[in-house]
Design a protein around this nucleic acid. Structure first.
Lengths: 337, 337
DNA sequence: TTGTAGGCGTTATCAA
DNA sequence: TTGATAACGCCTACAA
């Protein structure tokens, strides 16, 4: 059995009250006592029991994050960086991070959130890959359960989020390609239900309009934010009688799939075809050729989301509950260097 | 406030004892009562408080995993798959997964494990990237804290683990290259402290010996299991007056770094230089050219580790506490196809 | 078959 | 400045 606060109190001939208060740094404990208590506690290796503390304080000091995975892995390095940020910030505020994986909009996903929320295993959760109509936001808001989102949803306008303005980003990306002389620019997106698809597609259309390029539905493909999705959609676009000379992917993985499709057809990317992605993950650095992309500050955003969430958990009101950041355009060889 | 077992009991005019036992399926509760209780509990949305249950049972039903990260991300997709496996198995056994990131052998790493262990936030942990002399294994064993390892350590011979026999794997990889006519075969490893380095390097040497190829220290480089590490080490090897015609990386990322170094020197991998990795992560599928590699069953291993760990937590004795599996050689274009 | 009561280890209220 | 005591919500011997 681990050493409890009782043991420490007994050892010192003090009450557990005094020990507790001394350790928590209350100022109504004599300086000398505090020091004595602290030293003894450390010597005895006393660490408060989380279970007891949680029960008493009705708080777990735990936040949860469900990774949108499909099957046996989550392929997007975006999540690696995101998780690192969540974990680091949580730890720095004496919280811990609970993680699970679930395929979006499945019973399994619902179960995870429900369990965490109802049993109060977690004090709050972070949502990513937000959907336009996101049952998670509705459900959590209804139960007054603290949460923050990476990206916004349509249904719950008052919820805190950090959004990267990918609409403006994609418009800028199109502008970049137009400046390189492209007029037939394709786009491979994601399923419609995701907010990111609405925004990035809108940005693509904005960009075309700004350059007076007519929108051509044939140049729009649907992916699923994976390499495979990008690959298949690109095969179709590249097989067109009059194929695009540039293709934008909704994220870096999609764009990497485009690269592969191009390679298989013997198309030299950077010269014969321009390709660009979104996210600025390390994938974009290591493709052949390296990808032009819109970089979003994944790690810092994750940290800030946790900061916001913990503030909410502690009952504070956020000074800035809804934050919009601009992605950074990084030009690499895949669009001509 | 959430609905407690008290509320359910009051609603039914029963004691909390009966409600508790009915919900837990004890057989000394009248059939009719059980049904009544269950229905009411569900209707009222009762979910037991984790904090209370944990305190009472002295168990959290949580396992922990620390991702070996450096800086703001963990780059190896190995971990994505590993975490997915851990999470899935944990959930299927009604456990949850706590995750943190820490750079190996730092104060931060020590702190995470200590906190989880001492405060009993977690009931057990999973170790990966095991070191030859691993303070974690020592510490955990000393405190009788349940843990399982992916790979073995030198110090604690009785600890449960699942190991992939990468030594035999690398010997097979060398044999494969020898059969393709290679005699100058290089190896780019990892820091010595990792068990995997001892094994993979030994396998490399085994393979050379089996083929009667003299060991040449000049062909051995040191990486750090990242692309950058592989890249830098490969630059040195490829700049030798008599460079290797084949290079093995200690993992897929290292090998991908080699590919980049080769590309920069205008060397065609698959024809002029053979390259192979280890892990069989998706990285190996998407490099240019695709990588020959030794595939280990990451997802299934993670699941099995969790099974073992939970058995340990429940006080069971493992039928097979130390498991050794063989990796599968996957031949792709990077060694000639 | 059901109920009473004690305790898991804290924190917090109140009194001394 | 310190101490006695009451919860927090659940589980489980033991009694009825």
């Amino acid at each position: 059995m681990a050493v409890t606060i009782r043991d420490v109190a007994k050892e010192l001939n003090l009450s557990i009250t005094t020990v507790s208060r001394a350790l928590d740094g209350y100022d109504d404990v004599a300086q000398a006592t505090r020091i004595r208590v602290r030293r003894t506690a450390r010597r005895m290796g006393y660490i408060p029991s989380r279970a007891a503390r949680n029960l008493r304080r009705q708080r777990a000091d735990i936040i949860g994050y469900v990774i949108p995975a499909r099957g046996t892995r989550f392929t997007d390095p975006f999540f690696s960086e995101f998780i690192a940020g969540l974990g680091d910030q949580a730890v720095s505020q004496n919280f811990d991070l609970l993680v699970s994986t679930a395929t979006p909009d499945t019973a399994a996903e619902k179960q995870v959130y429900t369990r965490w929320m109802q049993s109060r295993l977690a004090d709050g959760v972070i949502l990513s890959r937000v959907r336009l109509d996101d049952w998670r936001a509705k459900q959590l808001a209804k139960n007054h359960f603290p949460f923050v989102m990476h990206g916004r949803t349509r249904g719950e306008p008052a919820c805190p989020f950090i959004e990267i303005d990918s609409r403006a980003g994609f418009a800028r990306l199109v502008k970049h390609l137009v400046e390189r002389g492209h007029t037939r620019i394709g786009y491979i997106g994601a399923p419609k239900k995701f907010t990111l698809q609405r925004d990035r597609f809108a940005g693509y259309v904005d960009g075309l309009r700004a350059a007076n390029i007519p929108f051509d539905e044939a140049l729009v493909g649907v992916g699923d934010l994976t390499r495979a999705g990008g690959y298949h959609a690109a095969q179709t676009l590249l097989a067109l009688p009059n194929p695009p000379t540039a293709i934008l992917g909704a994220n870096d993985l999609t764009a990497d799939g485009v690269l592969r499709a191009a390679r298989e057809r013997g198309i030299v990317v950077g010269r014969e075809l321009a390709v660009a992605g979104y996210d600025g993950t390390e994938v974009s650095e290591h493709t052949q050729p390296p990808l032009t992309t819109l970089k979003q500050p994944v790690y810092d955003t994750a940290r800030n989301l946790v900061k916001m969430l913990i503030a909410l958990i502690q009952g504070e009101t956020l000074a800035e509950p809804q934050i919009v950041l601009q992605p950074e355009l990084i030009i690499r060889e895949s669009t001509g260097g």
